[in-house]
Design a protein around this nucleic acid. Structure first.
Lengths: 201, 201
DNA sequence: CTCGATTGTGTTAGCGACTACCAGTTTGGT
DNA sequence: ACCAAACTGGTAGTCGCTAACACAATCGAG
């Protein structure tokens, strides 16, 4: 395709999102209207909706979902589910925090956690990721599917706990390490040194 | 205190909610306006908002939160966290399904799962329950608090998986049993017979 | 370089959730 | 019977969001 058009598009998108996060942080999410964001970014309110389907999507972080699902699908099938999923989450967190815009990521995370509407939407995104993880595992009987859902949801819940803690610490702690600790607190440390018992599925 | 006024109030509340669930199930949540619900219930749109803060609250189920927190606070402190929390969740589910309005509860649950906006709000309610559970545990150092959050979130995620499965089965399965199975699938069956480390070592 | 097609942007009008404010009526206690 | 409280309704307005139409910029091809 072309470059100039996509370049301008990405440029305005970043401008809109940057001003949105700034205004949301300064005045609060609910106290900031989409018109305010549009005016700050120098565009019309319609343009905001052309680039972001909803006001919430100006803040939400979604990436790495496909990456996580892919890693889990490629992980050795002999290990217990929570270890396979937990390892993928820790590795994805390492990639996430390796990005250069950690301060921007933290600002979005803080908004997501403190604003009820954003928190609800984020939790629903995590729920969608849970479905993606289950879909990445080989489909078995309904019983195995149920166990996969239970394991995935529990792992993601532990990860979310680590995310909240990481944001509360202003990103000073190591996120992958926090996720590991949360997983260990929920499932016991045995899951990272060896199977707790023969869990023949 | 209570007689005619509270009786009428509860009566109109039930009328509004019943018609709301019926219309939402028939036409879909998004395709039904609050004005439709008000008209069906024979009240003004204003009255709907007086009894239910938002349209979503016409569907959401919240009860048993305080009950669960209380049971966890009263559970023996020697057991692992996931066992204490899991036991309380199973017992609360037994009380929930013992109610007489199982069909009504199932209708609300189906709406909550299939409608994105309701699902997100419900997940945020579960998150609030997680906080209530952690607050019900004796406050320790930040590390213990973190572990409590991780354990509570993982248990509630497993419970949510069981809820989804129960709704998919149209309530034919036994909900407490499903929750037990989900917890066992996530944490291993050892957590219900004894500590994991004792058996592995 | 020009022409037609695609795409980004703006304007207007409108729906629906939700709130604030004001007014009328009913209920409970004395 | 009286007064204070609560329940209800109407009006107007804000905000998130969508649809329909018009205009300008950009790109591919002749």
């Amino acid at each position: 395709m072309s470059t100039l058009r996509q370049q301008r598009r990405a440029e305005t998108q970043r401008a809109i999102q940057t001003h949105a996060i700034r205004l949301f942080t300064e005045r609060g999410y609910d106290a900031t209207t989409v018109a305010d964001v549009a005016e700050a970014a120098g565009v019309s309110p319609m343009t905001v909706y052309r680039h972001f389907p909803t006001k919430e999507d100006l803040v939400l972080v979604d990436e790495y979902g496909a990456l996580i699902a892919g890693r889990i699908a490629a992980s050795p099938a002999g290990q217990p589910l929570v270890r396979r999923i937990g390892t993928a989450l820790v590795e994805a967190a390492a990639l996430l925090t390796a990005g250069t815009e950690k301060r921007f990521l933290l600002a979005r995370l803080r908004l997501m956690i403190s604003t009820p509407a954003l928190r609800a939407r984020h939790l629903d995104n995590v729920y969608a990721l849970q479905q993606a993880i289950v879909d990445a595992l080989p489909a078995g009987d309904p019983e195995a599917d149920f166990r996969a859902h239970a394991a995935a949801s529990a792992c993601l819940a532990a990860m979310h706990t680590a995310l909240v803690r990481w944001a509360a610490d202003d990103g000073r702690a190591d996120l992958p390490d926090l996720i590991s600790k949360a997983l260990a607190a929920a499932f016991g440390p045995e899951l990272y040194t060896g199977p707790c018992s023969g869990k023949a599925g």
